[in-house]
Each structure stands twice: as C-alpha cells, then as structure tokens.
Simulated scan of single mutants.
Amino acid sequence: MNEETAQPVAPPRLALRPVLLSGQLAAGALLIAGLAWVVRAVWEVRLAVAGEPASGPPDQGEGVHRPLNGLEDSYHLVTSVGGGLTFLCALLFLAWLGRMRDNARALSGQAPKYAGIWVFLGWIVPVVNLWFPRGIVVDAFRTTAPGRKLPVSVNVWWGLWLVGMLSGVGILYKDSTDKIIARAYSEVWPLLVSDAVVIGAAVAGAFAVRAVTAVQAERIRQGQGAQPLAVGTAG
C-alpha cells in the first residue's frame, strides 16, 4: 500500500488593502485642518485689531462671564468648526496609518515593529508619544521600500508636531476659548506663532502622507504585476 506523503501547507498571505484613496483622504483632511487654522489666525488678528471692549475680557474671573460681542461669538464658531475638522482629520489619518502598517506587513512578511494598538495609543501615552507615531510611519515606509530614503517631509511634519506638543501651543491649548480671546486682545503674536506651527505641521503632514503612500502603492503594483496575491486576514 502506498502511503501519501503530507506536504507542508504554506501560510496564507495577508491581504493588501488599497492605499491611494486612504492617502488622498488623509492628506486632504490635513490640508483642510490647516486651512481651518488659517481662518482661526485671521480671526485672532481681527480681535487684536478691534481691541478689548471697555467691559473687559469675556472671562472676568470667579466664574463671571460677560455676554460675547459679535466678533467674539464668531471666533467661538470658528474654533468649534476647526476642532470638528481636526477630529475628522485625526480619524482619517489613523485609518491611513493602520492601513499602511498592515500593508507593509503583508508585503514584507515581517512583523511590524510596533503593535497595532500603538497606532492609536501612541499619540496619547506620555513619553512614548514623543516617537511612536513617527516610528510607525517610518517602519511602514522602510519595510515597504528597504533602502529608500525617508521623505524629508516626514521629519518636518514630526518636528513641527513636537514643537506644538512640547511647548503647549497649537492644537494642544489648555486655555478656554474665552481666555484665548483675552490673549488675542493683549498679546496676539504668541497665538499666531502657535497657529503657524499647526499650519506648517498640517501641510508637511499632507506631503508626508502623499510621499509614503506613493511608495507603497508603487510596491503593491509591482507585486501584483509579478504574481497574484492571495486573500488572507490583515492583522
């Protein structure tokens, strides 16, 4: 009786996920968030030019807030819309980042340097938030395209983000909107510098997303041209 020899079964390859649309959405959202901060800076200049009303700042201390005038009320609207756009930008960026990480794993067959949970927690856990988010981007890029030079825009984006985070400016304001209005009346330049940091980080981030996405999309096209990819489970 002939015995059949069991052949080892190769593990299924992980599925690749389209990246171009995700990258376009993330880059576009970053630019829109940057534009929202441009509008915010314009309103702060308008507040500075108008000058503080005789009734004093909106937040008058000890829980007392005077009624807002039209310009101050519109600044509240501008900051609320900007905050909403920034939140949407964060969601689209995280979706893109997770997709890039998963695709890099599928393309290389190597386990990512950072666990998937850090795609989200890496931004908020103290200390590790100084390098984990950039590290995930860099790891996905270098795993996808070994030997290729990291786009300069990645370091510019992260450098500006760190300036904002460590100096307590940009999207990390701890002051209330009314207190920011008071600062615009008394000393607008620090606010404008903070806005410039956010705008610069958003623009650099958009360029970084486009550059990293283009490299991975090129690698995917090359792989698909060489052989069909099996469908598996992205982890």
Score class of each variant (00 low, 15 high):
residue 173 Y to D: 05
residue 102 D to T: 05
residue 26 A to R: 05
residue 86 T to L: 08
residue 233 T to Y: 01
residue 70 G to N: 13
residue 166 L to W: 09
residue 36 A to T: 10
residue 157 W to L: 09
residue 96 W to N: 09
residue 9 V to T: 10
residue 87 F to E: 06
residue 167 S to C: 06
residue 76 H to Y: 08
residue 57 P to A: 01
residue 62 E to S: 15
residue 164 G to A: 05
residue 216 Q to T: 08
residue 28 G to S: 11
residue 75 Y to I: 02
residue 198 V to P: 03
residue 209 V to R: 00
residue 43 W to K: 06
residue 203 V to T: 12
residue 123 W to Y: 11
residue 58 P to S: 02
residue 185 Y to K: 03
residue 161 W to F: 04
residue 8 P to M: 15
residue 189 W to K: 03
residue 210 R to H: 15
residue 120 F to W: 09
residue 5 T to A: 12
residue 191 L to N: 09
residue 119 V to Y: 03
residue 137 V to R: 07
residue 123 W to K: 09
residue 69 N to C: 04
residue 127 V to W: 05
residue 227 Q to D: 10
residue 200 G to D: 14
residue 36 A to K: 08
residue 72 E to R: 05
residue 24 Q to I: 14
residue 39 V to Q: 07
residue 23 G to D: 14
residue 8 P to W: 04
residue 186 S to H: 04
residue 7 Q to A: 14
residue 120 F to Y: 13
residue 6 A to C: 04
residue 196 A to K: 02
residue 41 A to K: 05
residue 8 P to N: 11
residue 59 D to E: 02
residue 208 A to P: 04
residue 161 W to Q: 06
residue 184 A to W: 00
residue 187 E to Q: 10
residue 44 E to G: 03
residue 51 G to W: 00
residue 124 I to P: 12
residue 198 V to D: 10
residue 83 G to I: 01
residue 133 P to G: 14
residue 56 G to H: 00
residue 80 S to M: 15
residue 198 V to L: 04
residue 224 Q to G: 12
residue 46 R to D: 00
residue 118 W to E: 12
residue 137 V to L: 10
residue 48 A to M: 01
residue 201 A to I: 10
residue 122 G to F: 11
residue 143 T to G: 05
residue 170 G to W: 00
residue 60 Q to C: 13
residue 124 I to M: 10
residue 138 V to I: 07
residue 55 S to V: 05
residue 37 W to H: 09
residue 125 V to M: 05
residue 82 G to A: 08
residue 14 L to A: 14
residue 187 E to H: 09
residue 90 A to T: 14
residue 68 L to F: 07
residue 221 R to D: 15
residue 74 S to D: 12
residue 118 W to V: 09
residue 99 R to A: 05
residue 85 L to H: 05
residue 209 V to H: 01
residue 113 K to W: 13
residue 1 M to P: 14
residue 95 A to G: 07
residue 130 L to T: 13
residue 158 W to T: 14
residue 206 A to E: 07
residue 93 F to G: 12
residue 163 V to W: 00
residue 50 A to N: 00
residue 190 P to D: 03
residue 182 A to R: 00
